[in-house]
Nucleic acid binder design. Structure first.
Lengths: 114, 114
DNA sequence: TCCTGTGCTACAATAAGCGTAGCAGGCATG
DNA sequence: CATGCCTGCTACGCTTATTGTAGCACAGGA
């Protein structure tokens, strides 16, 4: 880790001090459940509890933490009516790695997971 | 986390028991330094120490762990001569989120990181 | 009021990550 | 052989992140 989180300004993103946006983004996405959350929100808004179910009953502690970070980053927003959903730029992010889905299939075929 | 890591067969990938390749992939990529490592290997092979420098002097413990996982997943290989580099399918993975670079720039402009 | 669902949080325990230091092996040079 | 330097890799003690369980306050509907 570039810097201890506790040394950052509240809500900062590790790697951002490098001035390289890609580092900050990779760091943000490289935290547990972040990618998964974005993935689960790919086609519909979800309430926090529905999201938790979708994420295999992950701990609400981390989920809330990730949701805060994602909202802070402007990638996810909370609508009182329908729950959490991707923002416009959040959807753009999703689209950049939608091909990942097809890749995953190809990859798992040549890769003995268990 | 779907299951405690210690409950998995050695070298398994969390999420793989769901039968959904994308989950296993998202989980693999959603560990610290994994995305960054792939990124740093995008255009050249690196020795473990060079990779460590590139990754802002990250702890060798985690780096080695990630490299093992990535090799296990067939995305990275170690060449005695030149060091670590992406495999063919590893490069394909990289290409699926190369657009991330451009996205990161766009994203950071509308996002006050610090 | 009572029930249900929402977003969210406390808290203790476990697991992951970190930083320092150092290992064995290969391979050149003296 | 001895010395030095580089490689991949690991031990270990400490800090941080994540987990799991439980529960909060609030809002709406019956």
């Amino acid at each position: 880790m570039p810097k201890p989180i506790s040394a950052m300004k509240k809500h900062g993103v590790r790697g951002s001090e490098s001035g390289r946006a890609i580092m900050a983004l990779l760091d943000l996405l490289g935290r547990r459940w972040t990618l998964r959350i974005i993935w689960e929100l790919r086609e519909r808004a979800l309430t926090s509890r529905a999201l938790r179910s979708a994420c295999d009953e992950a701990s609400p502690t981390v989920l809330q933490a990730r949701l805060s970070e994602l909202r802070q980053a402007g990638l996810v927003e909370l609508l009182p009516a329908s729950g959490y959903r991707l923002t416009q730029i959040g959807k753009e992010l999703l689209e950049t790695f939608l091909p990942l889905h097809r890749f995953a299939e190809r990859w798992s075929k040549g890769n003995r997971i268990d």
